[in-house]
Design a binder for these strands. Structure first.
Lengths: 234, 234
DNA sequence: CATTTTTGTTAATGTAAGGTTAAAAGACGA
DNA sequence: TCGTCTTTTAACCTTACATTAACAAAAATG
């Protein structure tokens, strides 16, 4: 049934603890890549596809949060678990802001970690058959390449999109002709849903509308109180 | 923006702690139903739709796990967070087995709880993939798309519906040719049944009748003192 | 039949959400 | 540190919505 072992990227600077944890996870049928610091962690992340990242927060050179941010830029979906020192509540909150899926206070119980890993991986598996793979869209007479972040009209000169512009347009494109709930964009892109992020999103909608003006068959409609809808009229 | 506040079922037997927590959550813009034990919790769960359940593990009459199992039988999707006593690792593991989404050791930090709630609710939101079936209705020569909130006559130009118009028409459509009790609409849509909401509903019925005028085979009949009936004559 | 209750309908009002532009604040590399 | 790009916040305006009031018409009540 199971095609391949789940791959975990473990970034932990303490060599003893790291090795023990790695062995423990491998004993439990995970394929583990162990990086000794944030730098190395990011290098390894770029080289491979992982099903889960476990990041220590406190590390020399590059801490877990910075690493998480870099990882998130490459991949918005991969689950991240932070290992934080006990009592460091700030770390926990900061972790969630960066888009963590969970955290564990050190020292933690290994069985609990295992449960969390299982729960998270299973959860992600049921989530939309990774829309993460889709980066190129045809939107009316436009071509959106959301990996390189540009938008071309009629194959002409590409317009550069900022990260947020890009992600928002991509989300809209993924839901073409359908509702793209406000909440979805806010939680996925802004990672927070409040008055200000919501207004910020409206600003970006205005920007996108400007970009899309050249093709009058393409428009972004609002569904009051729900979200937006990218429609391509024929 | 406010689509509607997220609803939380809080089941906690300690009256002091429960009340404080409830108030805290309400201050943070959640709608909270507080049950004092497992029994009551299940009763309340059956009566309403919740976006999240927070269950204390240790409770008289019916503990959190048993309650969670019952809830899972009714609803496989609603997120559950357990509140467990510190150090009770067994509880944590058991919780995950019952299908918990997360747990918190008591005493916990309220901000952390808030983050977890946010994270879990938004996670569920992204999982919920649109099953368009539930949202599309044929009413005589009309097509109602209650997800995108529009009503089309003979495939012509769609008329936009407001949220209340939409929900009301959808409820009527779900009961096509049958009685749609006043009380049902008021409790489901207005979440309150009093003179004013009732009058408000009448106003919406008038609006819907206007929209439906183009097809003289479609009408909304009143059943005095009972409710309304959407009929499609052949 | 007179009276009360419920419903039909239109219009007015107040509030919230969204559209848009510009300025302020952050982020980041040179 | 400066300049540039990006994002957020502010401001102002428009539109969308829901509620309430007001008055008319049916339906029930007795």
């Amino acid at each position: 049934m199971e095609e391949h072992k789940k791959r975990i990227l473990l970034v932990e600077d303490d060599p003893n603890f790291g090795t023990v944890l790695k062995d423990y996870l491998m004993m439990n049928d995970y394929e583990v890549t162990h990086a000794k610091n944030g730098m190395e962690g990011f290098e390894k992340f770029k080289k491979d596809d992982f099903d889960l990242c476990i990041l220590d927060v406190m590390m020399p050179y590059k801490d877990g949060f910075t690493l998480a941010k870099e990882i998130r830029e490459k991949n918005t979906d991969v689950p991240i678990i932070f290992l934080t020192a006990k009592t460091m509540k700030e770390d926990v909150l900061k972790g969630y802001k960066v888009g963590a899926d969970d955290y564990l206070n050190k020292p933690f119980d290994s069985e609990v970690l295992l449960m969390k890993i299982k729960a998270i991986i299973q959860r992600k598996a049921t989530e939309t058959i990774s829309d993460s793979k889709q980066f190129e869209f045809k939107i009316g007479r436009f071509d959106l390449n959301s990996k390189l972040r540009f938008l071309k009209f009629d194959g002409g000169d590409p317009v550069k999109l900022s990260p947020k512009e890009n992600e928002l347009l991509r989300l809209l494109a993924l839901h073409e002709n359908d509702l793209m709930p406000r909440e979805l964009a806010l939680t996925k892109i802004w990672r927070d849903d409040n008055y200000f992020t919501s207004r910020s999103m409206d600003v970006y909608i205005a920007k996108l509308r400007k970009y899309l003006k050249p093709d009058d068959k393409v428009e972004i409609l609002n569904i009051h109180g729900e979200g937006f809808r990218l429609v391509v009229n024929s």
